[in-house]
């Protein structure tokens, strides 16, 4: 790439260079500031009992164990629904439907719009559809299904990109060996598209763990340990919100929870990266920005 960092006379140029460098450094500074703040204020709260105890005094004291369980439950439900649905949709759009056919275009466009729907609107929808109409009430199930709807477009796009990266020669060669489409897809294309699929799952997890607004009136904010998927339960992100806004003196535990949440997100990213590398024996670059754009 062409190098612009070379010296060049002119105040105009100096001003411009100053602006560009400031913008760049600002991004690093903001990241350092926020991540540093969360680590700095959160690290003191985290110990084993914080992870294994139930919250007491509205969360000011005690730990976050039931909240971790609710979070994982909702996440599991979300992925359990969104992964099969996104795989099927991506397979249909990329392997079966006629490219640029009317139905494929319609589905594609509606996914674009779905990706842009604000999370609070998903919350309204989840409340009206899952909680009220399907009578699931405020429950892990309502929350998980609402999150699945949110994560779906990200995961479909990512899987599509993965399939697009598989060379057409694989499809032709497989056909020339008399492999059915089904075998071609499950034994050759999907394994080869694994980096894209994994990226999608990571993005989906990231979105689900970060989500709060869509859960306020679907999964609810009970701090008890959920006994079934029909029980209400609060996630880490809702816990942070509640402690920060509604519980005077809840800030330090809010930071502790925020740090746990961020560590969870980073850990899942790293694990998935390692997994992908191990499975494919080569480094997978997560193509974040294209899919990110949809969020």
């Amino acid at each position: 790439m062409f190098d612009f960092s070379s010296n060049h006379a002119g105040t105009n140029h100096r001003l411009w260079t100053f602006f560009v460098w400031t913008s760049g450094i600002l991004v690093f500074a903001i990241f350092g500031l926020i991540a540093g703040d969360v680590v700095w204020r959160g690290i003191g709260q985290i110990n084993l009992t914080f992870l294994t105890d139930s919250p007491t005094r509205s969360g000011r004291a005690g730990g976050i164990f039931p909240i971790l369980i609710s979070t994982l439950g909702i996440l599991g439900l979300c992925l359990g629904t969104a992964i099969p649905l996104s795989l099927a949709t991506a397979i249909y759009l990329h392997e079966f439907s006629r490219k640029n056919g009317a139905s494929a275009r319609l589905i594609d466009r509606s996914l674009d719009v779905l990706a842009g729907v604000p999370s609070i609107v998903f919350g309204l929808f989840g409340n009206a559809f899952f909680a009220v109409t399907l009578e699931l009430g405020f429950s892990l199930l309502s929350g998980g299904l609402t999150l699945a709807c949110m994560a779906l477009p990200l995961m479909i796009r990512s899987t599509q990109q993965g399939l697009r990266a598989v060379p057409d020669s694989f499809r032709l060669t497989a056909a020339s060996l008399g492999l059915s489409r089904t075998s071609t897809i499950f034994r050759i294309l999907l394994p080869a598209a694994l980096p894209g699929i994994l990226t999608g799952i990571i993005l989906g997890i990231g979105r689900a763990l970060a989500e709060t607004a869509a859960l306020l009136f679907t999964s609810g904010y009970v701090t008890r340990m959920p006994e079934s998927l029909f029980d209400s339960g609060r996630t880490l992100s809702i816990h942070i919100y509640d402690l920060a806004m509604n519980v005077p003196g809840g800030e330090s535990n809010a930071y502790g929870t925020a740090l746990v949440l961020m560590i969870l997100i980073v850990a899942i990213n790293v694990t998935a990266g390692l997994l992908a590398r191990m499975l494919l024996g080569r480094h997978i670059r997560l193509s974040f920005h294209q899919t990110r754009s949809l969020s």
Partner: peptide, 18 residues
Amino acid sequence: VELLGGIPSVVYGLWGLV
């Protein structure tokens, strides 16, 4: 930048508030 984009909005809110 991706990491920055992955920070949950409640965490931004918490930082903003505190």
